[in-house]
């Protein structure tokens, strides 16, 4: 008796290239569920993006802040640190200082920052706005212009706010991060809408919204599983890579931040935060994540190891 059950996919995930030249990266392209390399020809390697903020984050856990102490106020150095010390292949730049209430930095200033970081670091970049629709629509087009032809990815675009950002990405040869609120329908609708204004699907990466371990992780996990299954069964509008913002969720959990003194039975504080980030990241690897946006170097190291083992084709 041949004890094997092979699922053949009728479709594969669209390959998306980030960046240009020798540092460019390919994500997507999978034609099987995550890491089942025996039934798929292309099981691509998930990538970890290192998160860099344009201004010092105010709400970070101490253990996290300590890791970036020397660069936390200097986004360019921060990005260089990620590249040189942490071996980053992809930078996720967060433009939180654009927010009208928290810095209100101008589009020009931030566009210059994007240009400078790219010039110094020369890595593919994902650039995320401040979340204020109006301001993002001013800032992101300027940043896209500043990175014209660099094949960077801009977000978040949402179903209520995609037209302006998508249009400037079309003009500048960049791509978008399509953000939906843990909802497979809205994820797909947004891809359709973005595609219909003229951006090709291989310039779109899905941000499905994830929950941290213990905080709704399973919703996002199942939404991603469903989307990936539908994609492999032929749904082209869902067959796009996923980017998951792991750290911003996991480090908000009280289990990541609570001190050992307050919770003596929860174990070591520093490791707890790291493992919380790593387990959250691991879970989404198995749901089909292509890009994991992470923070703690130690968590990055653990998850890199998991990716390496999961993509090791073994003996057979």
């Amino acid at each position: 008796m041949e004890l094997e059950y092979i699922e053949k996919s009728s479709n594969s995930i669209t390959s998306v290239i980030l960046g240009t030249g020798s540092t460019s990266l390919k994500v997507g392209g999978e034609d099987a569920l995550p890491f089942l390399y025996r039934e798929g020809k292309n099981v691509s390697l998930p990538i970890i993006a290192h998160e860099v903020f344009d201004s010092a984050p105010s709400d970070w856990a101490k253990s996290l802040k300590d890791e970036f102490k020397s660069v936390i106020n200097k986004p360019i150095e921060w990005a260089l640190y990620c590249k040189n010390e942490l071996n980053a292949k992809l930078i996720c730049l967060r433009l939180s200082s654009a927010h009208p209430d928290f810095g209100n930095n101008s589009a020009d200033k931030l566009a210059k920052l994007c240009r400078d970081i790219y010039a110094k670091v020369n890595l593919p970049m994902v650039i995320i706005g401040c979340g204020d629709d109006k301001k993002d629509n001013q800032v992101l087009p300027e940043c896209s212009k500043a990175l014209k032809g660099k094949n960077c990815y801009f977000g978040n675009t949402t179903i209520d706010n995609y037209k302006t950002i998508a249009a400037s990405c079309i003009a500048d040869g960049n791509g978008v991060i399509a953000h939906s609120p843990i909802d497979i329908n809205i994820a797909k609708q947004l891809n359709i809408l973005i595609n219909e204004v003229g951006l090709p699907l291989d310039k779109v990466i899905i941000n499905p919204t994830v929950g941290a371990l213990g905080y709704g992780l399973e919703y996002a996990y199942s939404i991603m599983e469903r989307a990936r299954l539908a994609a492999l069964m032929g749904d082209k509008m869902l067959a796009l890579p996923f980017i998951c913002f792991i750290a911003q969720e996991s480090w908000r959990a009280k289990e990541s931040k609570a001190s050992e003194k307050d919770n003596p039975d929860w174990g070591k504080e520093l490791e707890r935060g790291i493992y919380w980030e790593a387990v959250t990241a691991n879970s989404f690897l198995h749901a089909g994540a292509d890009i994991l946006v992470m923070r703690h170097p130690k968590a990055v190291e653990i998850v890199s190891k998991a990716i390496k083992e999961l993509t090791n084709k073994g003996i057979k």
Binding site: D183, I184, N185, K188, I192, M237
Partner: peptide
């Protein structure tokens, strides 16, 4: 219902 909240439908 959720996937029908689109014109004509999320499943084009």
């Amino acid at each position: 219902y959720m996937s029908a909240l689109f014109f004509p439908h999320t499943e084009l």
